[in-house]
């Protein structure tokens, strides 16, 4: 399970791949508790990101993942919870 752990770096990589990055935001900074909206990602970008995470990690996220998990920390936790559930 540890090798499957999903980190904030994984999240920013996938966010950038699937939705680009707002030029005014530094994604390498301390963003764990910043709302996605402030990071420049609205629900569509997060839906695309969730789709990419699901495919890369072979998991299925709940329908309300995007609306319920508003920060990178919450999203990373949600993905890890699902990863441990599938191991």
């Amino acid at each position: 399970m540890p090798e499957q752990r999903f980190t904030v770096d994984d999240l920013t990589r996938i966010l950038t791949e699937g939705a680009g990055a707002d030029e005014t935001v530094d994604l390498s900074g301390d963003i764990l508790d910043t709302d996605f909206e402030e990071l420049g990602y609205e629900s569509l970008a997060l839906l695309e990101t969730c789709g990419l995470i699901e495919r890369e990690y072979g998991i299925t996220l709940d329908d309300d993942t995007v609306t319920e998990h508003r920060t990178p920390r919450a999203m990373v936790e949600a993905v890890n919870a699902r990863l441990s559930a599938t191991v």
Binding site: G18, A19, G20, A21, D22, E23, G40, L44, A45, E48
Partner: peptide, 8 residues
């Protein structure tokens, strides 16, 4: 264009 627009 901003990078946010490119994937879409």
């Amino acid at each position: 264009l901003p990078s946010r627009l490119l994937p879409q």
